[in-house]
């Protein structure tokens, strides 16, 4: 399958996870990794499945590298019907009131433009003991079984 992996990051954790996901999938699939900062919303139409990893920052805001993408989504209102994506959040439960908001808001925006979510969005908790890849790889494997 053609799988495009995108990351929205502030300090690089999401980028690292995106690379881990690509490494995991590259034997069985045709993968690519890109920063959301350098991605046009329309580009999501090119892959059969888009995997998005996105953190949260400052009081539930998008991380810096997701912001230009979000601005384009808002300004250009592209029609993303037919686009399929799975989204994995990075967050920190110490920010209780806005835990995982970056990935949540991004998912909402994509759905509002017509895209479909595959699987449940889950969030890695930087204040917990799990490693992001230990959550994300099984999560994605489950999604791929049904995709």
């Amino acid at each position: 399958m053609k799988i495009a992996i995108y990351y929205g990051t502030e300090t690089g954790n999401a980028e690292m996870l995106a690379e881990d996901i690509a490494t995991e999938l590259e034997d069985a699939h045709e993968t690519s990794v890109a920063d959301l900062a350098e991605t046009a919303p329309e580009a999501l139409k090119a892959a059969e499945l888009n995997v998005i990893v996105c953190s949260s920052y400052d009081d539930g805001d998008f991380p810096a590298s997701a912001k230009p993408f979000v601005e384009k989504l808002n300004a250009e209102s592209p029609d993303l019907s037919g686009v399929r994506f799975a989204i994995f959040g990075l967050g920190d439960s110490e920010y209780e009131a806005t835990y995982g908001f970056g990935s949540m808001k991004l998912a909402d925006l994509l759905v509002a433009r017509g895209a479909t979510t595959l699987g449940e969005r889950i969030v890695h908790d930087a204040a917990g003991d799990d490693l992001p890849e230990d959550l994300a790889l099984p999560w994605l494997a489950g999604i791929l079984e049904t995709a």
């Binding site: 690089g12 954790n13 690292m16 920190d92 930087a126 204040a127 490693l131």
Partner: peptide, 14 residues
């Protein structure tokens, strides 16, 4: 008490 912020160390370890 901001252990989440220290998570970048995992990238640096790599």
């Amino acid at each position: 008490d901001h252990q989440g912020t220290k998570g970048v160390a995992r990238q640096f370890a790599r």
